[in-house]
Each structure stands twice: as C-alpha cells, then as structure tokens.
Design a binder for these strands. Structure first.
Lengths: 229, 229
DNA sequence: CAGTGGTCTAGACCACTGA
DNA sequence: CAGTGGTCTAGACCACTGT
C-alpha cells in the first residue's frame, strides 16, 4: 500500500503518456497527490521534482505544475577517455605521439580561450589506434601559463588526456560537434582520402576561470556517436 | 547558520575540486557530515545524492561514498524543434515540403526499426530554411502500421516533426551523430558541393515498443552543435 | 495576500553488501 | 552481522508569484 516515490513518479508519468493529463494542463498539487497516493508530501515532491528535472513537467510556485507543451528532449552523452572507449568496444588500444612543440599561442587560440597575448602553449599531435588502425587524431594545445608543469610532462607513451584528467580532474568544459573535411595531414594520419567527411569534436577547458587546454579530435571516417533518451 | 543542501553540496564539491578529498578516496558518512554541517541527514543526503547524479562521487551501501577516479564526463544536449532552433537564433524560419510518397519500407528501414515485412511507410523530404537559406534537410519515414493517421496528415505547410511531437509526445528515442559527404541530391538542396562534409543526425523513435519514425537530418556545411558541462 | 512549491528536521525502518 | 546509504513520515517555515 505504501507508495514509493518511484511508484508515484511512474504513475504520474503514465497518466501523462496515456494522455489523461494533457500537455499544457495543470496537474494536481502536492498535497492533493499526497492524499491520493496516501503518502507524505515529501514523497510526492521528490517524484514530481524528478519529472521536472527530466523535462516532463514545469513547476512554478503558486502557479502549480503543468505538463510541458513540448517535452524538453535532451540527450546525455558520456564523454569517455579515448582509451576506455576503444577498450570497451573490445579492441586493442595503441597510442602514438606524432608531434610535440612549445610555441606562442596562435591568434585563433588566444581568442578562443581568451589568453594573454603571447602566451606560450604546448602543442601536441597524437594518434589513437584501435586494433592497429588509426581511430582518432588529437590536436591539442595546453596553456603553459595555467599549467606550467605541462612543459615537463612526458607524453611519449601516454596521451595528454590521461595526464590532464589526473592533474586537473574537475574543470569546466565547452564542447562542440561538427563535420569537417579531411585535409592532407588528416588524410595521411587517418589513412583516408583528402576531403573525406570526418566527425569532429572540439573541447575547450577551464579550471577556476583559467584556460587550461583546447583540443580538436577528428575521428576516422564513418564514426558515429550514439545515445538514447 | 543553517546549511542548505546547496551549501553542503557546494562545500563538498569545493573540497573535492581543491583536492582535499582525493579521487578514489572515501568521504565521511552522512551522519558525520550532518554533524559537521549541523543539519539533518536528509539534507546531506540530497547534497551527496546530487553529486552522485552528476557523476562526481560514487555511492554504495555499506561501502560508503568515494570520489570518482575519473569523473564521469557527460554532456547534455537539448534537442529543440528545428523551428525553435532557428527562431531562437534570431533568424526567420521557412519550411518546404520537397517530396512526399507512401511506399513499402525499404529493407534497411525494416531492419533498423524491426518492422513487419512489407510494412507501408510515408516517406517525406523536407527543407528547413533560416533567413531564406537552406539550413537542414529532413529525410523522414513514418511507420503507417503504428500511426495510420499519418497517411492523411498534411505536411505541406508544417513539418512532420511538429505533427509528431503533438501526436506522440512521449516516445523512446535512439539518436546518432556522424559526418557524411553530400551526395548529388543533398548538394542541390543544401546549396553546397558534392562531397562536402555535412553534420548529420539520425533518430529512430518508438512508442510503447512500436516503431514510429526514423529521420535523417543533414545540416548545411559548417554546422556546429555545442554544449557545456 | 494567499496558494503553491522549496526546503529542513528529527526520527524511523529498510535494503544492500562488505568484512 | 553490522554499517552505510535509501527512503518515508509528519510537521513546519519559507519564498516566490499570480490574482
């Protein structure tokens, strides 16, 4: 008889899905629902709050709770370490450092990360292989003003990503996905044709407001990123 | 003096970010934290539970709560209606229906959605414009076995997406992002070159286990999808 | 100003799981 | 079996915000 917050949540959701409570419509208040399910208001609150977090309903004090007109559709993607991604798919992971230099940050990077002019950065080109075939090219810049210890770090056997995750574990990230054509260098590294459509992700990372790193990841042709919701 | 769950959450997070509590390490139990913050255990519970939802810590009964070794990095994307996406960017939205037919589902679609053999489907090609320029090509299949009323629906002035959202508001979705090269048709519709790299998303949708629709959305060259986390 | 959600509390019992 | 998180309760006060 005792309804759990999961029961309440599931029941409310089914009323919405089955159309008993229509999009845009008001649903009963917490006190009323608590009576109906004969449970405490806190239990109802958690159920409805989670539905609000899921984008199913919209809550406003005094105005009550409404079923969203257009349910907010959102997808969640896990952003795994490349090594885990490859190993979890059952393939063998291999890493290679292609190029490594310390340079003054180019203008586009200075703009993108809002760096001081003439900031020094470590620029790395790395390749990640799955079962011996090129899987992803990593073009990374690390801001040496924020992370001076990155100048000495050894990236010859382990990718900078793993070092960064260990060094700056909790940071703010901006991420973008796009499609881009392979240039000559990319085609050579990823063993594809110049002009091939490559799935590309770019990430910029800050820690306590300080720009840490920027990376462009280009996947081999045909790569798909998937999710359910 | 009374600590809210937000205070507690923020304080715990800052201890983790500043390294006071290290990745992999155990953090105090709920009772102990409740004493430290002089608040109820339920308050601490909510704070730590949210940190677990955010992928910062990992909780297990009896074992306690640990800071995650590798924080689970996950990005959330809102999947807006194309109309809203364009209008919210300040552009003018226009829609055009390019092609419309009812056919027997091709094999790849039957396989993808696990349809009955010889299922009939409505196949639509639509173009979405931003400020008069082609923005996205929509290649959609609607399963008429599940949604017979889709055979009569009028998609000449409004895209099938809006009709579907109104008709089957709550459904299960599988989504995939990739890059693909423009073929002749895509190049013509999106006003680009054959072979151009296009950002592409594919969605398959079910409702109560029944396949509803499959759509491939191809964006004009240069499109980026972004998020923060 | 009044009604609704937002949050806290003190206490309780339960469920899982590591030692 | 014992310790930790998971959840529920009954009651309370607060903070918004529509009317």
């Amino acid at each position: 008889m005792t309804a759990t917050y999961r029961d309440v949540k599931a029941d409310i959701l089914s009323k919405i899905v089955r159309g008993e409570w229509e999009p845009g419509g008001l649903i009963p208040g917490e006190v009323e629902l608590a009576e109906q399910y004969s449970c405490a208001r806190a239990t109802v609150n958690r159920a409805v709050r989670e539905l609000a977090d899921d984008g199913i309903v919209e809550r406003r004090r005094k105005a009550g709770t409404r079923v969203r007109m257009t349910p907010v559709r959102q997808a969640r993607f896990d952003i795994p370490l490349i090594r885990s991604e490859i190993e979890q798919s059952g393939s063998t992971y291999r890493y290679a450092l292609i190029d490594d230099s310390v340079v003054v940050a180019p203008d586009w990077l200075t703009a993108r990360l809002t760096l001081e002019p003439e900031s020094r950065a470590r620029h790395l080109i790395c390749l990640h292989y799955a079962d011996g075939k090129a899987y992803q090219l990593e073009d990374r810049w690390i801001n040496l003003a924020t992370l001076p210890q990155a100048e000495q770090a050894d990236f010859s056997t382990t990718g900078p990503n793993e070092w960064l995750v260990a060094t700056v574990p909790f940071s703010d990230v901006e991420i973008a996905f796009s499609a881009s054509a392979a240039d000559a260098a990319l085609a050579r590294y990823l063993d594809c044709m110049v002009g091939d459509a490559l799935f590309t992700t770019e990430r910029s990372t800050w820690w306590e407001g300080q720009a840490v790193t920027h990376v462009r990841l280009s996947f081999r042709p045909g790569h798909r990123m998937t999710a359910q919701y």
